[in-house]
Design a protein around this nucleic acid. Structure first.
Length: 585
RNA sequence: GCGGCUGUAGUCUAGUCUGGUUAGGACUUGGGCCUUCCAAGCCUACGACCCGGGUUCAAAUCCCGGCAGCCGCACCA
């Protein structure tokens, strides 16, 4: 039987809605596309995923987290390029009402690069070249800007334009000087931020895959452009990655599985630091329970890569409904952002890199003979002095030999420098280092898409049973507690056990409604990994059964051992099969 | 944004074409009975015509607008 490929997606989303994982927002007001609510279980799941992310990047990598505002002033986003990039010029056909990216159809029509032109210039091109609707040949409307950023006004007078941030990254670049000082001036260092970002998508229609408000977890790793190594590189040489390089894509080949070592040797991935981030992303996804065979790394084609990026890889997850979707982007952003913020803010955002050995250099400087220089040039002397600081002495010397003078052009004026005005002097200088803009390696996780991937790939349908096989370390509810029948004293004992579990920090639920089978089914459906059942034997010998969601097996354990055993299973990652084998029923 | 299709409890659905009594059913859920291990059964309760306007004595039903969903196109630095 041929299965509808969208079935699984539908079923997952239905249960997610029914059981409180994901809802579309503002439902009682008909909803607004591109926004979702995380329900009670969805919110825990999302937080569990985020906390695992923190354990990777903050605990293991030693990066620190910051939190910056979600509203940003226009200047900051001008510097980052978002004000220009997010203003897409649009036009519409007056006849067939088709809407186009104006720059795209102009570029296609006249085969010229039109990037950077404003709407008026684009409109002029349309009329000069008599560009018509590519579909029906109709007249095109005026060109307007569609801004993908949500705009707002800051302050009571509402004069200052602000935008909801389109990515969290900028919030890390802007306080770079403070961060550099926090890390005591030494590269490399990493900073992370987890939070909401906003993009006013034209037509978001893929549910949680394309949201107008979404959660990003981003790390910005600042490194020396001349040293993109990673201290753990030697430990991961033999790790395998499914790499779908730009070359593979262009030549219409398949993705290639290769070791980390080979990826670097063959220059498939541009740096150790970048490939280490790919490895880390894969490890993280596997630990969330996402199967290996639905993960791949796709390199951006030169044409799709942001203009500032040097190398960029998407971590993609295979879905039945949407094909391969990007859930993590890992880019080498070079020094674009810091350089740009530095230019716009006029703050020096460079890092002083000390050479391992100070460099002693000899150079010849042009030293003015002020006794003659001053009286000769008079009030022009200061600017000529400044000019000579950067001048090439060889050039001056040669000019003296050939013409007996050297012409200095400053603005519209020309000055004649004579040999008697200066002397050449050889000086020794010690250079201890240089100031550079660090490069940035950025892993950027789309948390909402990861939540979707976790739900999608943990969903199991077996016979009459459907459930989320959510990795136990991120399961929203950790333990269910049931009385076998809804009778005292079983109910009372069950409630007591649930409360003990809660006191030990486990999210635990009690259920006595319906039959035991129904309760297991309800518990499975929300992915609770373990269920404890209180039965008649409990009264006799103080034991209960613990049931494993994934294989329905039960083990009888002592009531006193419950919290320790749950702790072993969930926090210490102990295998259910290795619990008290003598007691397996 | 454009075009087509669709909107009835938490879910699936009858009723809409041909306007007319209290919008019917199943599943789910809550309460109770029964029940000693995987959605059984019985009793009982809660629960809906997407929103706004129009036509009409009367609108879930016809018309217009909005919103949302699905499909196609476009868009997705």
């Amino acid at each position: 039987m041929k299965r509808d490929v969208t079935m699984k997606h539908e079923n997952v989303m239905n249960i997610a809605k029914k059981r409180g994982f994901l809802w579309s927002s503002f439902e009682i007001y008909s909803g607004v596309a591109g926004f979702v609510d995380y329900g009670p279980l969805g919110a825990i799941l999302k937080n569990n995923i985020i906390n695992k992310w923190r354990s990777y990047y903050i605990v293991n990598e030693g990066f620190y987290e910051i939190e910056s505002p979600t509203i940003m002033p226009e200047e900051a986003l001008k510097a980052s390029g978002h004000v220009d990039h997010f203003n897409d010029p649009m036009t519409e056909c007056k006849d067939c009402l088709e809407v186009y990216r104006a720059d795209h159809i102009i570029k296609d029509a006249i085969s010229e690069e039109v990037e950077g032109l404003d709407n008026q210039e684009l409109s002029a091109l349309v009329s000069e070249n008599q560009i018509k609707c590519p579909k029906c040949g109709g007249h095109l409307s005026h060109i307007w800007s569609y801004n993908l950023m949500f705009q707002t006004l800051i302050g009571a007078k509402g004069k200052k334009i602000g935008y909801m941030r389109p990515e969290t990254a900028q919030g890390i670049f802007i306080p770079f000087k403070r961060l550099l000082r926090f890390y005591r001036g030494k590269l490399p260092f990493g900073v992370v931020q987890i939070g909401k970002a906003y993009r006013n998508e034209i037509s978001p229609r893929q549910g949680v895959i394309r949201l107008r408000e979404f959660t990003q977890a981003e790390a910005e790793i600042f490194i020396n452009p001349k040293d993109k190594s990673n201290p753990h590189f030697s430990e991961i040489l033999e790790e395998e990655l499914e790499l779908y390089s730009a070359q593979n894509q262009i030549q219409e080949q398949k993705a290639v599985k290769m070791t980390v070592q080979r990826a670097i040797l063959e220059e498939v991935v541009s740096s150790e630091m970048l490939v280490y981030q790919l490895y880390l992303a894969r490890k993280f996804l596997l630990e969330l329970g996402i199967p290996e065979d639905v993960i791949r790394f796709r390199q951006h084609l030169p044409t799709e890569m942001a203009h500032y990026a040097l190398d960029c890889w998407d971590v993609e997850i295979k879905t039945e409904r949407f094909g391969w979707i990007e859930i993590i982007g890992i880019a080498d952003r070079t020094d674009f952002d810091l350089r740009s913020h530095s230019k716009h803010s006029k703050e020096d955002l460079r890092v002083f890199i000390e050479y391992s050995e100070p460099k002693n250099i000899k150079k010849t400087v042009i030293k003015p003979n002020m006794g003659k220089f001053g009286p000769y040039f008079k009030n022009n002397a200061p600017k000529i002095l400044k000019f000579l600081e950067d001048a090439d002495f060889e050039q001056v010397k040669n000019s003296f030999q050939e013409k007996g003078l050297f012409e200095i052009k400053i603005g519209d004026s020309v000055f004649e420098l004579l040999p008697e005005h200066v002397k050449f002097e050889e000086v020794k200088e010690t250079i201890r280092g240089e100031k550079i803009f660090p490069h940035v390696i950025e892993p950027s996780y789309g948390i909402d898409r990861i939540v979707y991937s976790v739900l999608l790939h943990s969903f199991k349908e077996e016979d009459e049973r459907s459930y989320f096989k959510i990795e136990k370390s991120i399961a929203p509810v950790e333990v269910s507690v049931f009385p076998l029948v809804n009778k005292e004293p079983l109910v009372d004992i069950s409630l007591q056990i649930r409360d003990d579990l809660r006191k030990k920090g486990f999210i635990s639920e009690f259920d006595s409604s319906g039959t035991i089978g129904r309760r297991y089914a309800r518990s499975d459906e929300i992915g609770v990994p373990f269920a404890i059942t209180v039965d008649h034997e409990t009264i006799e010998n103080n034991t209960v059964t613990i049931r494993n969601r994934d294989n329905l097996k039960q083990v009888r354990i002592n009531v006193e051992d419950i919290t320790n055993i749950i702790d072993d299973l969930i926090n210490k990652n102990k295998d259910f099969e290795n619990l008290h084998p003598a007691l397996i029923k």
